[in-house]
Amino acid sequence: MPLHHHLFLEETKMAHRYPKPLLDTLYCLEDHIHWEEEEQVDYNEYSNTTTTNTNSSNVVLLEHDLFWDHEELPSLLAKEHQNQLSNTLLQNNLVLASSREEAVEWILKVNARYSFSTLTAVLAVNYLDRFLFSFRFQNDNNDNNNNNNPWLTQLSAVACLSLAAKFEETHVPLFIDLQLEESKYLFEAKTVKRMEILVLSTLGWKMILVTPLHS
């Protein structure tokens, strides 16, 4: 159930992010035409021909299109695979499932507030799920640990979103600004820093879902 709710939130966010005309282009049956158009634009630029506004607009549109087609689907599939892993965890711990749901909702709110990319949100949720799973596994002998520290999941969410933003975005807000969205706790910068280090170590520095162009 929490998973469905999460997906619904994501779908709503998608619909909001992309106006309907753009969404229609995602289902365009004549993709090859767009591709040829982009090639022409590139050639013109290369030949030092002046690019018209119309062409610029097309390029922007195509970039969105390409971004959606080439990056979103693999990362969403990867996320789904990861969620299968953590779904078992959530079924066995309702308290953790509840705090995870809150954390995911918080991540999505902050992501929208700062206009981060969808990939940033996907990365953040992936880090959070892997971290909670690993952490839970290591503390299996002490069920009370998570119950006694409800702040831990929220702090994990802050650290995971920060790490995802650092990985994917060009501009990352300060720790304090990242936490402007309403939540029960407000963590100091040095606390988030320590949690970042803990998350990185726990995940073995494997922070890549989709390999971005590295330049």
Binding site: A159, S162, L163, K166, F167, V172, L174, F175, A189, K190, V192, K193, E196, I197, L200, W205, M207, H214
Partner: peptide, 10 residues
């Protein structure tokens, strides 16, 4: 002060 630097993470 803002945690692990982005270039190092990448």
């Amino acid at each position: 002060s803002q945690g692990v630097p982005a270039p190092i993470i990448r």
